[in-house]
Nucleic acid binder design. Structure first.
Length: 197
DNA sequence: CCCTGATTCGC
DNA sequence: GCGAATCAGG
């Protein structure tokens, strides 16, 4: 497999979206994450930065000195955005960009049964909750069948409604949820019983 | 142990 | 240029 224009483009796109190298590699197929990372570096877009907030990255003591120099400040800007139409892939989820306005259908609770003990709003760490609501905007909104062992299985919304999905963000480790949802899912008992702030 | 990106270096 | 091996971390 070689880095055709299209593959490079997809690489750029996904990398720009913050996808991980392994995910990109998996999507591309025929390459490993190492290959992706290598390519990313060669393309000179290793920085996912974008702001001048010079982050002091330290804690780096490798055997050899590593001057992070950029001898080639070659402006690789892309003024001409003449993108070709995206390939229509089956089972491919594209990002509708700025879509997904918050649906307000959420208050429609169709006389349901007592919903399962939704760990959501109640007596949970407000901070964790904030994190969740924030991250749910970025949720991939997977259906049940789309869940894998690596996707957050946190249910959102009412199962009896259209407005229901699973978070689907990448899980952290062997946990069933993404980081944010782990935060509200696994609250220490001591925290729930007697939480005072 | 799972994962992440970063770097090196033979090809 | 490429990417496996390795490194360094979470």
């Amino acid at each position: 497999m070689s880095w055709s224009d299209e593959r490079v483009e997809l690489l750029k796109k996904m990398w720009g979206e913050g996808q991980s190298a392994s995910q990109i590699a998996k999507e591309l197929g025929g390459v490993t994450r190492n290959a992706v990372i290598g390519k990313v570096h060669r393309l000179g877009l290793s920085n996912r930065n974008g702001s001048g907030g010079a982050a002091a990255e330290s804690t780096k003591a490798k055997p050899a000195a590593k001057p992070a120099a950029k001898p080639k400040p070659k402006a690789a800007a892309k003024p001409a955005a003449a993108p070709k139409a995206e390939a229509p892939k089956p089972a491919e989820e594209d990002k509708p960009a700025a879509a997904a306005p918050v649906s307000r259908a959420k208050q429609i609770i169709p006389a349901g049964q007592p919903l399962p003990p939704q760990p959501s709003a109640n007596e949970i760490d407000p901070e964790a909750l904030a994190k969740v609501s924030e991250i749910e905007k970025k949720a991939k909104k997977l259906s049940l069948m789309e869940l894998t062992e690596r996707t957050c299985k946190w249910p959102v919304g009412d199962p009896a409604t259209e407005d229901f999905w699973f978070c689907g963000l990448p899980v952290q480790s062997g946990k069933p949820y993404c980081e944010a949802h782990v935060g509200v899912a696994f609250q220490p008992m001591s925290n729930r019983r007697d939480r005072k702030r």
